[in-house]
Design a protein around this nucleic acid. Structure first.
Lengths: 248, 248
DNA sequence: CGTTTCAATATGTATATACATAATCGCCAT
DNA sequence: ATGGCGATTATGTATATACATATTGAAACG
C-alpha cells in the first residue's frame, strides 16, 4: 500500500512536497479513512513513500500536530486525535466595512464623550485594579438612514494617553485605536438582550426588542486598553464564523 | 544592537532556540517596539545574532508569517504587518459540558423526531441541491430544572444513513454525530431573536423575550451533514471568544 | 518473581548545504 | 529620459546528517 505514486504522472500541480504530504494526510483523516486512534505511518515510512527526506516529512507532521489533527508520541509514532473541541474563527470586521459590504452608505456619529476618573464599574469592565483616568465614548454607526449599531466604549487613558486629546468627531474610536495600539489579546462576549428605553431610542427600535450585544476587551502586553460594547438590533446583524480544521 | 546575548548567562530556561526566536520577535512586535511596517532583521542577521543556522531562523519566521504577524517579501525582507483583521477563536462546547461547568445537573429530552423527504426549506438550510431523506429532530437541554437550550436539527441521511436508525432518546444528536462523522468544515451564524410562542413555551420564558440563536452547518468532505439551530434564553447564555495572535 | 538496566526506536531539534524563485537595483543601449 | 536585461539579493524548499530525548520492550539481575 502506498499513499501516492512516487512518480506522479498525472497532476503535477506544482504543489510543494510539503503541501502534498499535508493535504494527503488531512484528507485521510477528514474522510474518516484513518479513524481517531489510528497510527499514521512512521516518518521513515512516509520518507520512503514520498521519496523525500525525513525533515520534509517531519515538518509536515509537526504542522499537523500543531494544528491538533494528530498527536505525536516518541518511540510510539503519530496518531489521529479524537475529534477536537469544536472551535470556529469569528471574524470581527470593522463596522464601516460591514456596512459598505451591504452596499449601504456608512456614517458615524459621536453622541457623547466624557473624560473622568474611573468608577468602580469602569474598572470592572476594563479589568483594571488601580484607579485612573478613562475616556467614555458613546457613538452611533449608521447604514444609510438607519442606525446600525450603538457603541459604548471605555478607553484606559493610562495605556493610551493620546486618546485623551482626540475628539472622535470624525473618526470612530475603533479605527483610531487600531494601528495606534498593537493589541496582544482580546476577549469577546456575545449575548442577546432586550433593548432598554435608551437603547431603543438611540437605535430607533421598539423598547424591549431583541438586540445582539458584542462586548470586547482588549489588552496590549498585559495592560487593559479598551472595553467596547456594540449593540445591534436583531434584524440588522448576524455574526458569521467559519472553521476548517488545520488549513495549510 | 543585538536581540539577545549569544551566550545566555542568565535564564537557561531550556527553551529551544526556535521558541526563543519566536517569542523574542513576538514580544518586539506586540510591545510596539517594532511598529507595523518595520523591517525585521534579515535571516542572515538573525543567524548571526542568535548564532544559529539559517534554517532555524527561517522556520521561526515562516511560522510568524503563517500566524499573520509578519509579512515576508522576497528580495526585500520581512516586515511587521498592519494589525490583522480581528479574529477570535470561538469555542463551541458541548452543551452538556457547558451546563456541568455551571455546576448544574444536565438533562436531555427529545421532543420530536421525523424522517421525511427534504422540503425546499430543509435543502436550503442544509445547502443541498438534490432532494433526499432527512431526519428532523427537536430537543431540549436542561440545566437543573430549567430549560437551557432548544435544539432544532436536520441531519442529511444521504450523508449519515445510520442516523435514520437512531431514536436519539438517550443521546443528543450532537455527541452522537461527533466521533461518528468527521467534519471538515463548519459555519456558524449567531444572532439575536425574539422568542415566538412555540419557543417561549418550550423554554419556559415569556413570548418575545430576547434569545441568542446559534446556527451551525457542518460539512464532511464537501457533503452537507447537519444543520442545527440552538436557541438560548438571553439570560442563560453568553458566548465567549478569546484571541491571542500567533501563540507559539 | 519483581525490579533494574540497557539497547532499540521514533520523534525533536539543529546544522550545513544546495538550488529555485521572485523582486529589485543599476547598467546599458536605444 | 526610458525601456529592457542581467546581476544581486532575500526568501522558499529540500537534502543529508548529527545528536538529544523520551519511551518502550526485553534482557539481566537480585
Amino acid at each position: 500500500m502506498s499513499l501516492v505514486e512516487t512518480d506522479d504522472i498525472e497532476g503535477g500541480e506544482s504543489l510543494s512536497l510539503h503541501q502534498r504530504i499535508l493535504s494527503d494526510i488531512r484528507e485521510k483523516i477528514l474522510s474518516g479513512a484513518w479513524a481517531p486512534g489510528h497510527r499514521i505511518p512512521f516518518e521513515h515510512e512516509l520518507t520512503a513513500q514520498y521519496n523525500c527526506s525525513r525533515m520534509t516529512v517531519n515538518k509536515a507532521l509537526s504542522q499537523l500536530a500543531k494544528a491538533g489533527l494528530i498527536e505525536r508520541r516518541r518511540r510510539s509514532g503519530s496518531f489521529v486525535r479524537q475529534p477536537q473541541s469544536q472551535a470556529a474563527v469569528l471574524e470581527l470586521h470593522d463596522i464601516r466595512i460591514e456596512v459598505e459590504a451591504l452596499g449601504l452608505p456608512y456614517r458615524y456619529e459621536r453622541l457623547g464623550r466624557v473624560k473622568r476618573r474611573s468608577s468602580a464599574e469602569d474598572r470592572a469592565l476594563l479589568g483594571l485594579s488601580a484607579p485612573g483616568q478613562v475616556l467614555a465614548l458613546e457613538s452611533l454607526h449608521f447604514a444609510g438612514e438607519r442606525p446600525f449599531a450603538l457603541e459604548k466604549r471605555l478607553i484606559n487613558l493610562s495605556a493610551v494617553a493620546e486618546a485623551g486629546e482626540e475628539e472622535f468627531l470624525d473618526i470612530a474610536p475603533g479605527p483610531w485605536l487600531i494601528g495606534r495600539v498593537p493589541w496582544s489579546e482580546a476577549e469577546h462576549r456575545i449575548r442577546a438582550m432586550a433593548a432598554d428605553d435608551a437603547i431603543a431610542d438611540a437605535l430607533d427600535i421598539e423598547a424591549s426588542a431583541p438586540c445582539l450585544v458584542v462586548e470586547r476587551r482588549t489588552w496590549s502586553a498585559e495592560h487593559p486598553v479598551t472595553h467596547v460594547r456594540f449593540i445591534y438590533p436583531a434584524e440588522s446583524h448576524t455574526l458569521v464564523a467559519r472553521f476548517t480544521p488545520s488549513q495549510g
